[in-house]
């Protein structure tokens, strides 16, 4: 597993390449840091929460979101195009019979535009290696106790797609506005390591 990115050999290599690109005028001074900052700037779990709240109040939107998430995001003014290329988004919906949880076992792929920077536990080797093998046990450690008959579905972001969980709408929230509903959605709920 590539869990440790602190290798001084790799860091030195990256700095050397960056310096060469700057020398040859292919990169402005500090451009990489600036691009990373721009990419991360709009990313916050509030975006994902807004998508979920819309899906809860608008079944048509929910259907479009599950069928083609990238297209549906445009309806709420969001996109997955913040990086060099648009990333495909796959939204998976929890139900009374199935619970989804997302991981990137190979590194730490994550929908930053919708969820912001990932939490440290998401990048830990413990989470990445254990949740594919024993999701029920890992969820229990997160305080999520699911009925034995609930099917568990783990999604490994091993290629180019990013994933977000559409949690179930909590009971007794019929009177809440869309904005109030968005306030109930947590980052862990969007990864699948918490209920909402």
């Amino acid at each position: 597993m590539s869990g440790d990115h602190s290798s001084s050999v790799i860091s030195a290599h990256v700095r050397q390449v960056e310096a060469l690109l700057e020398q040859r005028g292919l990169l402005d001074d500090g451009e990489i840091d600036r691009r990373i900052d721009e990419f991360a700037a709009g990313g916050t779990p509030a975006n994902g929460a807004r998508v979920v709240a819309r899906a809860w109040v608008d079944p048509g939107f929910a259907e479009r979101l599950l069928a083609d998430a990238n297209a549906a995001l445009g309806e709420v003014g969001l996109s997955m195009s913040g990086g060099l290329q648009e990333q495909r988004l796959k939204v998976v919906a929890n139900s009374a019979t199935e619970h989804h949880v997302v991981v990137c076992t190979l590194c730490s792929c994550y929908p930053i535009a919708l969820l912001g920077p990932s939490p440290s536990w998401y990048k830990s080797e413990a989470y990445r290696s254990r949740v594919v093998r024993d999701p029920r046990g890992v969820l229990r450690e997160f305080g999520v106790e699911l009925p034995a008959e609930t099917r568990l579905s783990v999604w490994d972001a091993s290629a180019e797609s990013r994933y977000m969980v559409l949690p179930r709408r909590p009971e007794g929230t019929d009177a809440l506005s869309e904005a109030q509903l968005a306030g109930r959605v947590t980052r862990k709920g969007l990864i699948g390591t918490a209920l909402v």
Partner: peptide
């Protein structure tokens, strides 16, 4: 995959 477990794992593969 693991010889045990009643869940599924969906992996994205070329």
């Amino acid at each position: 995959l693991f010889g045990a477990g009643d869940h599924t794992v969906t992996v994205e593969l070329w």
